[in-house]
Amino acid sequence: MAKKILIVDDALFMRMMIKNILTKNGYEVVAEAENGLKAIEKYQQTNPDLVIMDITMPELNGIEAVRRIKKINKDAKIIMCSAMGQRSMVFESLQAGARDFILKPFQAERVLDAVKKATYS
């Protein structure tokens, strides 16, 4: 069965790009969210196999969202999505429990590799 993925990014453009890459490769994007709060809501509704999470977002940033999702489900798998130059935030989110990170601009193969490895079970 196709793995279910939740995409969180405040830019529609980025969500579109990631969604494109994933659906083309047999993943199911079950939901999208444009900020951290929405992400938590959608996470509870859809219980996805994986979350791809932007770091800088309005309302609630990605790092905090990771912490809260991890509280809901400590095995939640989350890949951070970061622009370059956010070194400390990447560290923070890894400490908060994110599994992996990818840097913008993406290479599709990196995204797929990370998704594949994170959803391996």
Binding site: M84, L94, D100
Partner: peptide, 13 residues
């Protein structure tokens, strides 16, 4: 590889 230290952090973890 960018942010090598973060990558290494994951390996350590």
């Amino acid at each position: 590889c960018l942010l090598k230290s973060a990558r290494a952090y994951i390996v350590f973890r």
